[in-house]
């Protein structure tokens, strides 16, 4: 049970990705996270830890992978990468699809001020697929929540929200690359917003991840 919980946490951590010595703010949500006048918003959510399906890394990151027994990307070419599968819900919490997140880290993801490329692929059965690219940072998750929780031995409860997206668009948003089906002609931008409301000493993360699309 402990192991199962731990890897589920890692799924959450994968979305937020681990420690960065960046300056943390309780609600680090830049203005570009909100729609501009005339923009239509379409959001998908991942409830943590319930919607985590699978997570693996190159083994360098301090993340518990899962399900138990999942292989790591141990080859030299892949040992600084991450792959995540999670379910997606609508705003009411109903599962409407599933998604993959693939990340390449340019260096030690625990290092300060690092940012990295992330590819999100959303599959919304009955509607279509959406392909996304963003540059991400963690916004200080590690030094502000994970590390103090582990050192203090006390569960963390709070409300910590961060927009992890910092590019590649000049506005700071991520880019909608394309889609299929209902989304075949999709154009616009997006942000990933992660809200953490709990983190336990045994490594269970509670919260919600939002993929917020701004449609042109």
């Amino acid at each position: 049970m402990q192991t199962a919980k731990s890897w589920v946490v890692a799924v959450g951590l994968a979305a937020l990705v681990l420690p960065v010595g960046a300056i943390a703010q309780a609600n680090n949500i830049p203005a570009y996270s909100q729609p501009a006048p005339g923009e239509k918003v379409l959001s998908f959510f991942g409830i943590l830890p319930d919607h985590g399906v699978a997570l693996t890394t190159g083994g360098k990151m301090p993340l518990r992978t899962g399900p138990e027994g999942i292989a790591l990307f141990t080859e030299p070419a892949l040992n600084n990468t991450l792959a995540l599968i999670m379910k997606l819900a609508d705003e009411n919490g109903n599962v409407v699809g599933f998604a993959s997140e693939l990340e390449i880290f340019p260096g030690d993801p625990a290092a300060a001020e690092i940012s990295w490329d992330t590819a999100w692929t959303l599959s919304i059965p009955g509607r279509g697929m959406i392909f996304l690219h963003q540059i991400e940072h963690s916004g200080g998750l590690g030094p502000n929540i994970v590390d103090p929780t582990m050192k203090s031995g006390k569960n963390w409860v709070g409300d910590w929200t961060v927009t992890t997206t910092v590019g590649p668009l000049p506005s700071g948003r991520g880019r909608i690359v394309g889609g299929s089906g209902e989304f075949a002609n999709i154009k616009g931008s997006f942000v990933e917003i992660d809200r953490l409301t709990g983190f336990t000493v045994d490594g269970v993360m509670f919260g919600k991840l939002e993929i917020r699309l701004f449609l042109e």
Partner: peptide
Amino acid sequence: MMPATDRVLSEPNVKDGLALINK
């Protein structure tokens, strides 16, 4: 499932789904 797991795509909207991670 690989590896064995009970965290499957069981909900009505995703029950026909498949998700694969590979090298």
